[in-house]
């Protein structure tokens, strides 16, 4: 590798040879071993530019943004939609009463009683996934 090529690579890719294109790294390290003073001067200059560039502050992703992004995912939308249909239907009590009439109350009650806190939504999702939720409280 020539000095000019080493210099142009540093100008493009910065002062860390490890971040240069993989196909030139061996030759660059060989140049550095053969001409350490020239290489050091070039790399020091490039590192100073790297340091300036790295002073640009990173923008953190807020929790609100993360939540909005996740809420827009199809799985989240579908879950919300099912839950909404359930909650805006005849109501949980009425739904369960309807389920009783349909002869499935025992199984549902058992599931509700066994479900730990926080899993209600998952249970509702399961009910709707099996079509039972529509029967329980769906408006459509």
């Amino acid at each position: 590798m020539t000095f000019e090529r080493f210099q142009s690579l540093a100008e493009a890719w910065g002062g860390a040879i490890a971040r240069w294109p993989a196909e030139v790294q061996d030759a660059a390290y060989a140049f550095m071993a053969a001409s350490p003073e020239q290489a050091d001067a070039v790399l020091a200059e490039a590192r100073a530019t790297d340091a300036l560039m790295d002073a640009a502050p990173a923008l953190s992703a807020s929790i609100a943004l993360r939540d909005r992004v996740i809420a827009a995912a199809p799985a989240a939308r579908a879950r919300r939609s099912r839950l909404w249909r359930w909650m805006t239907g005849a109501g949980v009590g009425a739904g369960l009463a309807a389920a009783t009439a349909a002869g499935v109350m025992a199984g549902v009650s058992l599931s509700l009683a066994q479900a730990p806190l926080g899993e209600d939504e998952a249970l509702l999702t399961t009910l709707y996934d099996t079509g039972l939720g529509e029967e329980l409280g769906g408006t459509t």
Partner: peptide, 8 residues
């Protein structure tokens, strides 16, 4: 590479 060098 040219764009990078000019940018830097």
């Amino acid at each position: 590479e040219s764009l990078l060098a000019r940018g830097r």
